[in-house]
Amino acid sequence: MDLQQLEQDLLPLTAYAAPVVFGSVFLEYWLTRHDEEHRYQSRDFWSSVGIGLGSLLINAILKTSVFGMALFFYKIVPWRIETHWWTWLVAYALIDLCNYFAHFIAHKQRVWWATHVTHHSSEHLNFSTAFRNSWTQHLKLIFFVPAWVSGINPVVILTCYQIDLLYQFWIHTEVIRKMPRWFEFFFVTPSHHRVHHGSNDRYLDKNFGSSLIIWDRIFGTFQEEDEEPVYGLTKPVASFNPVYLNFHVWVDIGRDLRKAKSAREVWEILFGPPV
């Protein structure tokens, strides 16, 4: 397998899903248009759209590099796992587990928080909030190396990655309240993700799962939705500017690094908890 073959074999699932995504945004907008508390707020919505368009552009520019990295790691390992129906399940679980740890660390260390804070910047939760993917989020690809060195075909791995990403769209809403109990036990739902976006004390750093909530149950980061979430950052950012929302934490880190007087201070600035 070479890079050209990988690009040909990999279906552009995110492009195929675009009509469903935009249709869902329009439907949610229409359903909540008379609800003062939950309806779309114009400036917030266009801020999300601006961030999303920037993210799409960066994804397009870096697509070949991402594919190349996946293929590089696949080729350097001596083992292979043949593709069967169960390989897809293993690959998806592995991708979702990598996503869980990437998400968890992004909330615990300042430099990784800088790649994620944009997603939490809105004080509302609706389908358009899912567009708020940081323009520097590709730095977190390092957390997916375990999937790339698994020996599973990169087409399978990257397809599962796309599906896992698409799954996260529908959980950004207040319109869907609760799913069946069995579904809520295994899978991430809007209720679970509302908790994650809440800045309530009991909701902070909870429910990091992307598709499967079982990782949160296993690792002790699960929290049921038992009070109304207050969305946004604990230190709200008074801006709707997509550029500012993507880089304000990076600017703060750069300012603090200029003042650092030792390697230990540099380490604490980069890998200490978000401030």
Results as ranks from 00 to 15, higher is better:
108 K>T: 00
77 V>F: 01
234 T>N: 06
27 L>W: 10
34 H>A: 07
57 L>Q: 07
43 R>E: 02
229 P>K: 12
3 L>F: 05
122 S>E: 04
110 R>A: 09
5 Q>F: 15
2 D>A: 10
73 F>S: 00
225 E>Y: 05
127 F>R: 01
35 D>W: 05
227 E>M: 13
35 D>E: 14
14 T>S: 12
69 M>L: 14
232 G>C: 04
267 W>G: 11
127 F>G: 14
115 T>E: 00
35 D>V: 07
57 L>Y: 01
140 K>R: 13
156 V>K: 03
228 E>M: 00
20 V>Y: 11
91 A>L: 14
147 A>L: 13
137 Q>F: 06
49 V>Y: 02
138 H>V: 04
99 N>C: 05
44 D>G: 01
27 L>H: 02
260 A>W: 10
275 V>G: 08
63 K>G: 03
185 F>H: 12
22 F>D: 04
125 L>Y: 13
181 R>Q: 02
158 L>Y: 01
267 W>Y: 15
77 V>P: 10
53 L>M: 13
118 T>H: 01
120 H>M: 02
10 L>V: 13
21 V>Y: 03
50 G>S: 06
65 S>K: 07
180 P>H: 01
97 L>D: 04
116 H>C: 05
44 D>K: 01
82 E>A: 14
12 P>Y: 08
212 L>C: 04
74 Y>V: 07
161 Y>M: 13
156 V>C: 09
176 I>D: 01
111 V>D: 10
223 Q>F: 06
52 G>T: 13
177 R>S: 02
273 P>Y: 15
39 R>M: 11
157 I>T: 03
184 E>D: 14
247 F>H: 10
233 L>Q: 04
55 S>K: 12
230 V>Q: 15
167 Y>C: 10
223 Q>I: 08
20 V>P: 08
173 T>Q: 01
152 I>F: 10
45 F>S: 03
54 G>M: 05
203 Y>F: 09
229 P>M: 13
73 F>V: 04
270 L>M: 01
252 D>T: 15
2 D>L: 10
26 F>I: 15
156 V>Q: 11
220 G>M: 07
131 F>H: 03
15 A>T: 15
54 G>F: 04
181 R>L: 06
251 V>T: 15
241 N>G: 05
253 I>Q: 00
187 F>I: 12
130 A>N: 02
186 F>H: 06
27 L>F: 08
76 I>A: 11
197 H>W: 04
189 T>Y: 03
70 A>T: 14
37 E>T: 08
264 R>Y: 07
189 T>C: 12
238 A>Y: 10
147 A>M: 11
176 I>A: 11
190 P>R: 01
250 W>M: 03
